[in-house]
Design a binder for these strands. Sequence first.
RNA 1: GGCGCCAUCGUCUAGUGGUUAGGACACAGGAUUUUCAUUCCUGGAACCGGAGUUCAAUUCUCCGUGGCGCUACCA
Length: 474
Amino acid sequence: MSDIYVRFAPSPTGALHLGGARTAIYNWLFARSKGGKFLLRIEDTDNKRSKVEYVNQICDSLKWLGLNWDDEPVFQSKRLEDYQEAVRQMVKNGRAYYCFCTPEELEERRRASGEYRYDGKCRSLSETEIKANLDAGKPAAVRFKVNAGMTQWTDRVYGTIKVNNSEIDDFIIQRSNGIPTYQLAVVVDDIFMRISHVIRGEDHISNTAKQILLYNALDYPVPEFAHLPLLNGTDGKRLSKRHGATGVDEYRDLGYPPEAVFNYLAILGWVPKDGNEILKPEELIKRFRLEDIARKSAVFDVKKFDWVSNEHIKRTDNEKIYNIVLPILIENGLVHETPDREMQKYIFKFIDLMKSRFRTYRQFAELGSYFFKDPEKYEGKAARKNWKNESVNQRMQTLLEALKELDDFSGSSTERVIRQLSEQMEISAGKLIHPTRLAVSGYGVGPGIFELLETLGKETVVRRIETALSKLPQ
RNA sequence: GGCGCCAUCGUCUAGUGGUUAGGACACAGGAUUUUCAUUCCUGGAACCGGAGUUCAAUUCUCCGUGGCGCUACCA
């Protein structure tokens, strides 16, 4: 099916946010699952807020997510002539008309009548009146003439939606400065780009009827429409800055894997029938169906997103994690620019030990820093619990001496020492294990202690216990 | 104000005219005679309200309520 064309059409007024990314993902998924094309269009028609930096930022985010688009992006700002031609055509055949009402007049009349819609004042202007106004150089916007009737379409996710044309006023399609409005530009572009399926946010449902009218006026077949429910914050309100990070770039900077963002956004509002929720793009493509998307707006749940992210990191092979994490470790001054073979092996061991517990790549450098430098402080709660008083020092002193004696510092070897000692002291092994963990890592939690000791090595472990002995209890 | 869309555990959802209303995340409890930020097990937790149709309604219809969206010479 080569006649399937979809597009993602962001306006460059900010970074790509989660909602936009989700729309892009669904478009991409649909195109890729149908063998169609996924196109990109930048909606930068005279919006004072449009900025080139944002165009680049959005493209970067899309690439980061793996949303590769086909063909060159279309910029609306470069297509003015097409829009104006379409408008000329509609004015000529009576589907649109010049309107000389100024925004101020409109505002005033709206206020006076309490009616939101355009009152149709310029709709019935005579040829001579129009010519006179035009000749006098009066600014003229162009309005689309909405005739009585009923407009409806079968939405691929919402089903049949009907709108009475009497609810739609004669909307402006071209501003008095000659720049088209969104409604017109979208339709002309979608025709130009041969878009077969318009997949976009639910906030466009009420624009759809207007656009269908435009397709009819332009004498082009109407594409399929599929509207997507919006993303909300935890308070049920539309996702915004108040809810925390909303930009895709922010999640990248936080160290989340792109496949996790992709995966979570994709299953937010749609769960594959087989119940598998952790999926790679290719697997999502296989399962994707527009019709399965829920019609209810969804709440972005950071907790579940973290879970998805951790699941992806767990499944990522160490080699790949190494390549991603190494620069972060270097950047944080934990590892030298060019680690030698021994250090490389050590980092692999570190990744193996810790990847099941992290949800971002950045956490390898943050929560895992003790693999590369001695802890600077001890987690307060864990210290209070596991290293209460001087008696711990005595026990740990004994343990330290025993560890120093060890030639074989393997996990099984240190385990034997600790267990024997705890038996001699008639305490539970935990009474030695927890203070040891605190001493070597600074945390009350972490991987299995014996494996950790083995990985860290005798020298480091001994040094850190000595340090802890001198600093704890605080 | 008008119009449109939506409504199942806290969150994402499955589902059906008759079900113990299923799963996932989160949460709680337990196990791993070492923690949890690992792993495993167990548990609590939902059909917005009211009418109607029907032998039977979470499911169908209507009304209400609530949420969201649109109602711009923004996109």
